[in-house]
Design a protein around this nucleic acid. Structure first.
Lengths: 349, 349
DNA sequence: CAATATTTGAGGTACGCAACTCAAAATTTG
DNA sequence: CAAATTTTGAGTTGCGTACCTCAAATATTG
């Protein structure tokens, strides 16, 4: 021992196991790879040796020997708002990592607001893909397409927006009702003691995540902060211009407006509408998704808090989950759980 | 091509590169592994081929061929409070992952409140370790020990608590002044409009992280919330009983106390003291680190917000950084950045 | 041009495992 | 007990890279 070089010690190989169990390498291999044609007694002997030596197959060697590779398809929204652009970037980064693991990803863009377009893409996923990750849309045809893929043994991971009724492998994203409740608690506490109305601006309530956030928000607001009335949500289609228009109308229409919860994108539109109205200073604004824009508005104090999810974490998580499924490796639920991040001006990354 | 089986396509090997460049495998190998004895012209040819084919060495094969393994030492506090226990668990989980990468970790416990004990351990790290991760303590002898290790080419990662003046490879933990500022903003906003005094309870101000949190907290409070006076910090040594005593004294001494910022552990002590005093309902309490206890107090409404860091993320990050350093692989700064988590009752994981 | 130095090619071995074959041994069955 | 069947051993090949040797080809120098 000694010497600063990286050592070679400590690893027990399958050959060690075979020797320990008093069987041949072939038999040890049959046991650890669950091939049949081995007596129960011999299996037990080998497994005892595995346990005694703490043998764990070297994944590098195994993957090399198997020489298998995988292809995954990521389906992301077109016409991307800032958050979706970030997600796209992060998927490409994750793709590099996947490439190092002999897994290759293709990215396809579709219009999220068009369930039929998304369903068509899902229905026509070419053979040869070993997994699909998609920013989904809760719609019967989409659900059916996901189930069909699952039946074809192509695991599907929903990303950011879920389709809980479909037999997808996993949902990688935040708990949206909880995100809405979190926004409500912040809103209620930031407005402590004040009375007035609170507006909700969504991209579209047809998007499950937006609807769920609004639901959670309203639920907590009405239960815990009866002095603050939540207005019915208005829709801005995640587009800055439209959002600006609906926000401006909302502000004009509601003189008692003291809070705004922006469930989707279109942050710049809201900022513009607030600025024009001159009522920004005494309005609490809580927004979603940390992007370059929302970050700026948080720093200038226009946004009071941002509820967010980490697109890098989500992209990597989807990648890891698909790969783990193909390799049937275990997943670490702890690592794959996507948290609801709260950002104030002080804890920005 | 059809077939649902995992394919074999797509991977370009070094042999492909050699063929493409019109050189032998040996020469291609010399170029990609930066061995000398190759003409500049030939190097260029090979590198062009690498670029053209997008060759990336298969890390599985490389690691297998190199057949190297590593040993890391993790130094964690004894007498662990809940958070440190969680960290310990997560380090063990990360150790399993590392074992799959042919890297093995040993864990050693020391008393964090004893700089000399920590320094002794650091000074006597046995030869043969390829990296050290430590929950450190900012003290001259500790700093010197870290620098010595670095000089011995043993990279050191500081975990949770930093020693910025030492030549450590990396700090894996949160920005503590920013965490303090975050707590202050929450405190200030939750107490919107009220006047009174706010107490700070630390484990020990000799711990850099605790001192920094207190600093950030006081900074923002005095600048932004002049109606709220921050009292000098009291120390509870991260021990429930002592913390309870100092908290009780604080509450008794300060009739105008309307907020408590608990910078360290001892959460149960504070809960008990608050409960006894009967003043819990109108007191805002902001605590650190999400543990089983603090979680419970958050859910019951005693704690109003928890500022936290993710021990699983930290353990994995330290592991990845040490391994990447040994393999000289690149690190993804984005992935290794430890965020300041804010937990309310609504966004608990 | 010859002698020397440098560069390149060809080939091998090793890494640990997967997947396979074929024959030998052990066990079960008629 | 012999025949049929199951189980085991011994061995091979290949995965892609690292690292090594030795000889051949090429370039550089006097």
């Amino acid at each position: 021992m000694g010497g600063g070089e990286a050592g070679t010690v400590g690893r027990t190989t399958l050959e060690d196991v075979a020797r320990e169990a008093g069987v041949s390498l072939a038999t040890a291999d049959r046991v650890v790879n669950r091939r049949d044609g081995v007596r129960a007694k011999t299996i037990a002997r080998v497994e005892a040796a595995v346990a005694r030596l703490g043998y764990r197959p070297d994944p590098a060697a195994a993957r090399l020997a198997r020489n298998q590779s995988f292809r995954f398809l990521f389906i992301l929204p077109t016409g991307a708002n800032s958050f979706m652009s970030l997600l796209g970037e992060q998927v490409e980064r994750a793709a590099e990592w996947l490439a190092a693991q002999r897994a290759y990803v293709d990215i396809q863009h579709v219009d999220v607001f068009e369930p039929d377009a998304l369903a068509s893409v899902l229905e026509s996923v070419p053979r040869g893909y070993h997994g699909v990750a998609t920013v989904a849309l809760d719609h019967p045809r989409v659900r059916a397409a996901i189930d069909d893929l699952t039946d074809r043994d192509v695991p599907v991971v929903t990303l950011v927006s879920d389709v809980p009724s479909a037999r997808r492998l996993h949902y990688v994203g935040i708990d949206n009702p909880a995100a809405g409740r979190t926004a409500a608690t912040l809103m209620g506490r930031f407005l402590a003691g004040r009375r007035g109305v609170v507006g909700v601006i969504a991209g579209s309530l047809a998007l499950r995540d937006h609807a769920e956030r609004q639901f959670g928000f309203t639920q907590v607001m009405s239960r815990e902060y009866p002095g603050l009335a939540v207005l019915p949500a208005v829709e801005g289609r995640d587009d800055s211009e439209r959002t600006r228009a609906v926000a401006a109308a909302l502000i004009a229409r509601e003189p008692d407006l003291i809070g705004v919860y922006n469930v989707g994108a279109g942050t710049r539109g809201i900022a513009a509408a607030l600025e024009e109205s001159g009522r920004a200073p005494d309005l609490v604004w809580i927004a979603h998704e940390l992007t370059a824009h929302s970050r700026r508005f948080l720093l200038t104090g226009q946004i009071d808090a941002i509820i967010s999810q980490n697109p890098g974490h989500e992209a990597r998580s989807a990648a890891r989950i698909l790969l783990a499924h193909c390799l049937d490796d275990p997943v670490l639920p702890d690592q794959e759980k996507i948290g609801i991040d709260i950002f104030l001006r002080d804890n920005l990354p």
